[in-house]
């Protein structure tokens, strides 16, 4: 299985390569990718240099252009496709049907992957992308169990890729508008879920409170592990009591499921976290490189090693091992 690793900067990309990445995904520094955060991502020249650097070391570069274009600004997204192809990207990760159509028509030889943002979670949906645009791989949403992934992988005629570590989005990806309601900025069209411009922290005697778009969404006691300031991981008071109503602050860690994912026929394992620093990239990539080696040699991987990097200092197998039905 290929190890697909995140990079938000050229330095993080080098760290990922040094740590054992087979392929790296990254994006341009604009709203064409779903991690459009300040100081992050690649200029055109940085991407070209990164691709030359990676290819010289046998590593592939996948370019995420995985937000949904505004009808009035299609050119920005189409130019991103053209520039990524020109730079020599090994694959484009796309979510929007119109953009995929553009890429397939103008760059028929370019390998296309269906982004998790497309929320293609069943064989019929995936078949549409494969048959219509020639998509070669689909990144599956993080809402499927391992048996469901195995069933889908058997039925579809393209490769499947699944997340094994990092932020856990449990919503219909590419469709969630929770953050938009609070900030008027869209995760799906502008690439900003909980944009930093709308986040505020306040240190008080009771701990730290996090606000998004002026709404207090959580408060952590002085020694309580914290999570990202996203509404889906907010703590709210309702008629049923106070607490997390969507999901706890927790990260996906599928280290112990690697053999099951291999047996399911999965082609590639993805690490989330283009917004994270080099220390995260280096450590998490190295961990999964060791775990994959252990899988081949019959060894055992340390399943506790990545706890310091997890949101809320806790990990979960998420939907991969469903216990609620």
């Amino acid at each position: 299985m290929e190890l697909i690793c995140p990079a938000g900067t050229p330095s993080a990309l080098k760290s990922a390569i040094e740590a054992g990445a087979d392929a790296i995904y990254c994006g341009f520094n604009d709203e064409t990718n779903a991690r459009n955060f300040p100081g992050l991502n690649f200029s055109r020249s940085e991407l070209s240099e990164a691709i030359t650097f990676a290819h010289g070391r046998g590593v592939k570069i996948l370019v995420a252009i995985n937000t949904f274009p505004r009808a009035s600004a299609l050119e920005l997204w189409q130019r991103a496709v053209d520039d990524a192809v020109k730079a020599g990207a090994d694959a484009l990760i796309l979510a929007d049907i119109g953009l995929m159509d553009y890429a397939a028509r103008h760059h028929p030889a370019q390998r296309l992957h269906v982004s998790v943002q497309a929320a293609a979670a069943n064989p019929d949906a995936i078949a549409y992308y494969v048959e219509t645009f020639g998509a070669r791989r689909v990144v599956l949403p993080r809402v499927l169990s391992v048996p469901e992934i195995a069933a889908i992988t058997r039925e579809v005629s393209c490769e499947t890729e699944v997340f094994v570590f990092g932020g856990l989005c449990v919503m219909a990806e590419g469709r969630c508008s929770l953050s938009s309601y609070a900030t008027a900025k869209s995760p799906n069209m502008q690439g900003v879920c909980s944009p930093a411009s709308h986040v505020a922290y306040a240190q008080t005697a009771q701990g730290v409170s996090s606000r998004l778009g002026g709404f207090t969404i959580n408060q952590f006691a002085p020694d309580e592990p914290a999570g990202y300031p996203t509404l889906c991981k907010g703590r709210f008071s309702t008629e049923l009591g106070a607490g997390y109503i969507f999901e706890d602050p927790v990260s996906l860690d599928a280290t112990r499921l690697l053999s099951g994912l291999r047996d399911a026929g999965v082609s590639a394992l993805k690490i989330e976290g283009r917004q994270r620093g080099r220390a995260y990239v280096e450590s998490v990539v190295r961990h999964f490189r060791h775990a994959l080696t252990a899988l081949e040699t019959g060894g055992e991987a340390d399943v506790t090693r990545l706890k310091p990097f997890t949101e809320g200092q806790a990990s979960t197998l998420g939907a991969y091992r469903k216990t609620w039905r």
């Binding site: 914290a226 602050p249 620093g277 220390a279």
Partner: peptide, 16 residues
Amino acid sequence: GRLDGDALMFSRQLAI
């Protein structure tokens, strides 16, 4: 770059 800022935030060792 030896520590990850988000990880420090999660473990409450960094305040912003």
